[in-house]
Design a binder for these strands. Structure first.
Lengths: 360, 360
DNA sequence: CGCTCCTGGGAAAGCGCTTTCTCAACCGTG
DNA sequence: CACGGTTGAGAAAGCGCTTTCCCAGGAGCG
């Protein structure tokens, strides 16, 4: 049933958790009384109350969540599933989710997939078993046919169980799939970033991070192309460099390109800041400086950006996470069609762009 | 009882989770049979098996973890509590924890404290209710008397319940407190970092991040002082700058110091990379460059380090997390005295240190 | 052919809690 | 002093699952 392994092993010592019965006995009352006093929603005599609290303290008693859940006072929780926690974008979203969950007293479960669709599906399944109020999926994934089908199924069964699937920074699965969607305007952002470069007079703009089939990459590429088109610049596929969204790739892309022949671009639009950082490194190694020789724009406005003075598109990462759980909660409470919100992005100007001098 | 709020709200629609009984009825068998077939640990007739699996599929059935836990097949989980997920160090540790947990099929719960001891205690309590196999506490905290007492109590009651408290990158609470400890050799690392600067001929070394009462800061300060002493350099309290471990603070420290008077140091040892990044920024603003004018060493070897070419102490962040859960598991299985391991650190040389020219 | 031995599956007893439902005691009133 | 209205607390019924314990039927044996 469950695709994730579960090894069974016995603890070596007979460690025991104290039960409500033991507390009741020690306090000389019934379990019902203990339960009520702990819940604090019932008239209670101070004397009894004290005795119970005393027993609780002495026994280090904590209620068993599982029993409590079964009996009708479930602990709410929300699950977040990301590629990796170390990637700044995911980390920020996770932070937002965690913060918002904590604010309403919910627990936060977390799982990572390493970018593997198979593991992601398994994680969703696991979280479904946990009866999380919402399962939040963040970011990039290769959205092929089979994946969509399976994920739609999960969305449905999650919804049938009163939970929600939340897609965060990811395109909707389809019109009839009951999934909450919260994303940023990637296409618009990419449009703005590219336009910024175009406004500075750049015409040969390399873009880094093309990745067919991956939703986030495709959205940015679309924005890039739209901007070019809007400025009447012919679109050159040779300027669209393929690769994943990691630092090393940015480095590789530029290194290889500069090694391959004379420089045929005056600016770079990197699809994320990591890529930009890697690219910058490669440029420096080739004696090129930013923005003197090459202008550079990133996407994300995450930690590396500030350190390298990168002009970049700011994304409301943490807000993405917060909104995800807020929306999930609201939707679970009020019902209706699953919301789909698009958060805005804006350009943050630092020191990596300079107008292109028009040569006479 | 529970210090965290729990709001109760009713879902708007009658969303229902299917139960094992419904599956049993649909398949025309008893619940016992369904349970056994799902567990797969019992001889079963293929025909029955197929009927059951069919029903499971049709009903989108997933077992209720809570019921299952109660009935004796608990889902194991491990909880990690950090200041914040966005801080790279915590993120890496969390990644390690998550990965290791996933490897043994455990669930990973996460909570953040924002550096507040009160919230940390509340989180431990919450995780205790969840019956996590281990509660992992990461990093810095103001370890005052009251905090220690309370945390020791939690350690004891966690241990009494067959769980473990794991302190990650934090000093032990005391000899008789049943807590697993895994940390890095901060003092040794700080010693090495400072020695590296000393070996390059620097004698006036500013150190950034003094913070009395905070264990991690104090360990680094001790290493710094030890190194100075080992080289017979008189120890100047005026060179120990106080502040928290964030970028802005590093910037502030250097900015204020340079504004206050002539530069009285030739090198800087920052207690973490964020501080170093901030300091670098301030140096640049003052027309000082690294390593030409000032040598700089950081601590952590986390993302900003690579981008700014920082020579720094490498810490095995992710390994810290992995070890934490591994140790907790082992200790829960085999018992004995709680282990205490210290992981090694090493210097990573980049381009931020240069030998001091001895002026004639 | 009568016996034991497997194999497959049902009944039912909990796991630890919450929550009706019930009831005893006690209060103040007319 | 009898009586309705509080207040405080117990008994017991589940919540959804796992797991003994138990039993029917067929295979294998002497």
């Amino acid at each position: 049933m469950n695709p994730l392994v579960r090894k069974a092993k016995k603890p070596v010592e007979g460690a025991r958790k104290s039960t409500i019965r033991e507390v009741a006995e020690r306090a000389g009352v019934s379990t019902a009384t203990v339960s009520r006093i702990l819940a604090g929603n019932y008239p209670d005599a101070p004397a009894t109350r004290d005795r119970v609290m005393q027993a609780v303290k002495e026994l280090h008693y904590v209620a068993n969540v599982h029993a409590r859940s079964l009996a009708g006072t479930p602990t709410k929780s929300v699950a977040i599933i990301v590629n990796s926690v170390v990637s700044p974008h995911y980390a920020h979203v996770a932070q937002g989710v965690q913060a918002e969950a904590a604010a309403v007293g919910w627990l936060c479960l977390i799982g990572t997939t390493g970018g593997d669709a198979e593991r992601e599906l398994a994680m969703v399944q696991l979280m479904r078993e946990q009866h999380a109020e919402a399962v939040i999926l963040v970011g990039n994934v290769l959205a092929n046919r089979e994946y969509r089908t399976r994920m739609s199924q999960y969305a449905h069964s999650l919804a049938a169980a009163g939970s929600r699937l939340v897609l965060c920074g990811r395109q909707p699965l389809g019109p009839d799939v009951p999934a909450v969607v919260v994303e940023c305007d990637y296409t618009g952002g990419a449009f703005a970033a590219t336009s910024h470069l175009l406004a500075a007079g750049h015409k040969r703009i390399l873009c880094l991070g093309r990745r067919p089939g991956y939703t986030t990459a495709e959205a940015r590429l679309a924005g890039y192309r739209n901007a070019l088109a809007a400025h009447g610049i012919p679109h050159d596929p040779g300027l669209e460099v393929e690769g994943t969204f990691v630092r090393e790739e940015g480095y590789r892309m530029i290194k290889e390109r500069l090694a391959a022949g004379p420089r045929d671009f005056t600016a770079i639009f990197a699809f994320n800041d990591l890529l930009a950082a890697g690219a910058l490194h490669a440029l420096h190694e080739n004696g090129l400086s930013v923005p003197q020789d090459v202008s550079l724009v990133g996407f994300d406005d995450l930690p590396p950006a500030l350190d390298i003075g990168l002009t970049t598109m700011h994304l409301p990462h943490e807000e993405l996470g917060r909104t995800a759980v807020r929306l999930a909660v609201e939707h679970a409470t009020h019902g209706g069609t699953p919301p789909h919100v698009v958060l805005d992005t804006h350009l943050v100007e630092r020191e990596s762009v300079r107008p292109l001098e028009s040569r006479p």
